[in-house]
Nucleic acid binder design. Structure first.
Lengths: 138, 138
DNA sequence: GTGTCTGCAAATTGTTTGCATTTTC
DNA sequence: GAAAATGCAAACAATTTGCAGACAC
């Protein structure tokens, strides 16, 4: 995605396009390791050494509110973030805290079809994500 | 589950059966709302007014280590806990921080069969859980 | 120029740690 | 009696808040 597009996406939401906010958005979008707030901070600091961690959190909150990014839940007690692109699942490494994106439209369809035929009583499904826990073979 | 069984389960793990630990285990087991540490604390305090929050965390850690309970992460940055019974999934309410257990062996089988036939390259699957996000119809 | 955003520091929240005392086995 | 668990307080880590000055629109 070009920088111009990012700027437009930000502007569309009504958020002001500040260089810090743009950079944070860019990092979360391009970094495919689901960075934590501290990791984002470290990157931003290279360009803006005076950035405050509070500002990072405020920017993150504003992006979540405008649905440009989402939180990722891991077992550990730290939040990670990702930019929502297309629908996907997560591979969780049971040995480390690593989370990898997993795209698979076949399984999406299988699961969606199943729940279309078999509704959960009194519950309106908005989204279904798979947490695939395991480990990487070396 | 009878109290006697709980005591046995605890004793089997090698953990010492103290009244505080037994009570915490009982609460997590019977409370089906995935209580937080603070919620557990509030319950335990009725019987042991001097209980310390640090003790609650130590007990929780010991139960997790012995695999009697597991962590559940929600959108908010708070840990919740549950006693692992049989394999199940979670319904996440998108409006509140509520998490409900969801048991369904049909979908378990469908998903497992799929991944038995379609392996993920370089990844050894240990478990698959569905995060079903949506909201409850009133 | 107005209202939003940043940077800074202090406050808050959830969790962990160290140690003396008590309890389980 | 030895090892482990509790209670308490202090430490820590992640996140939030309040506010003055700076910046986007």
């Amino acid at each position: 995605m070009k920088k111009r597009e990012l700027i437009n996406k930000l502007a569309e939401t009504g958020l002001r396009v500040t260089p810090q906010r743009l950079l944070v958005y860019e990092i979360i979008l391009k970094h495919n390791n689901h960075p934590t707030a501290e990791e984002i901070m470290a990157y931003v600091k290279k360009k803006f050494p005076n950035i405050a961690i509070g500002t990072i959190y405020k920017i993150i909150d504003s992006l979540i509110e405008k649905k440009l990014i989402t939180r990722v839940k891991t077992d550990k007690d730290i939040m990670r973030y990702e930019a929502v692109l297309s629908h996907h699942h997560h591979l969780y490494c049971s040995k480390s805290d690593i989370v990898i994106d997993y795209f698979n439209q076949d399984i999406d369809k299988i699961v969606t079809d199943y729940f279309n035929k078999n509704k959960i009583p009194d519950f309106e499904i908005e989204d279904i994500k798979l947490q695939i826990i395991g480990c990487f073979k070396k």
